[in-house]
């Protein structure tokens, strides 16, 4: 009787330990062991064979300890590795930061990516992206004393180049970057304006961006939205939707 009581006490402690281990490891062996001990305590089969149950229990406990605790030693308190569960931006490269800013601008525009990687966007969304990127880069360049000291045309070309590069990286569906806009009507000489370089009427123009019928061009603030270039944009592109992306000269 005393032996049986001690056994039950020990087994009760075993259940607690097994449950604790089971909650720790969540293993099948742990579950089996707990069930066997439960069966033993409840005596559900009516013919209690303590020896058989004890053997099954100890065997399951041993398997459990070997398979689980043996292969995966319980970590000692205080020795757990520190897990970084936050985003550490200090490790980002300058390029990664620029890519992240460009993506943020794209997301803010409302344009959403597709599974193919291309981004379908409206003309308004593209205009928003161009405005933000141009302003961002204009400010970065203006704050750099070396770049700020360069002639205006060089600074403007650098901004164009940067924005073109980033827009290409965003892969907006149907967006044409720095592509020739040829006259759809006639061969050379369809423009009413004479090229200063060739001395003959323009045969093509190169707008910074084109999305379907919309032409977008980066210009310094104050540039008039009229003139030979705009006329040709409208005439060659057969559209009246020409938009300037302005930046403040520096």
């Amino acid at each position: 009787m005393i032996k049986a009581t001690c056994l039950i006490i020990n087994v009760g402690a075993g259940v607690q330990s097994a449950r604790a281990l089971n909650s720790l490891f969540g293993s099948r062996a742990g579950v089996r062991m707990v069930n066997q001990v439960d069966d033993f305590l409840r005596g559900t089969d009516g013919s209690l064979d303590v020896g058989r149950l004890w053997r099954r229990f100890t065997s399951a406990a041993q398997r459990f300890l070997e398979s689980e605790a043996g292969s995966v030693p319980a970590p000692r308190r205080g020795s757990l590795p520190r897990v970084r569960n936050y985003f550490d931006a200090t490790q980002l490269s300058d390029e990664a930061v620029d890519v992240a800013i460009a993506k943020s601008i794209r997301r803010k525009s409302g344009a959403r990516g597709t599974s193919s990687g291309q981004i379908p966007a409206s003309a308004d969304q593209v205009e928003f992206m161009l405005q933000k990127m141009t302003a961002w880069r204009r400010n970065v360049h203006a704050a750099n004393p070396h770049l700020a000291s360069l002639p205006a045309n060089v600074k403007g070309t650098i901004i164009h180049s940067f924005v073109s590069k980033r827009m290409r990286g965003l892969d907006v569906a149907g967006l044409r970057v720095n592509e020739r806009l040829n006259s759809p009507f006639l061969a050379p000489g369809t423009s009413q304006h004479i090229s200063a370089a060739t001395g003959v009427p323009y045969t093509y123009r190169i707008p910074d961006f084109r999305l379907q019928a919309t032409t977008l061009d980066i210009k310094p603030q104050g540039t008039s939205l009229t003139g030979a270039q705009v006329d040709d944009f409208m005439s060659f592109g057969n559209t009246s939707d020409v938009r300037f992306i302005n930046y403040y000269p520096f």
Binding site: V140, N144, P145, H146, L150, V154
Partner: peptide
């Protein structure tokens, strides 16, 4: 100046 400036940004 241009090259250094571009590298810096």
């Amino acid at each position: 100046k241009m090259l250094v400036g571009l590298k810096e940004v």
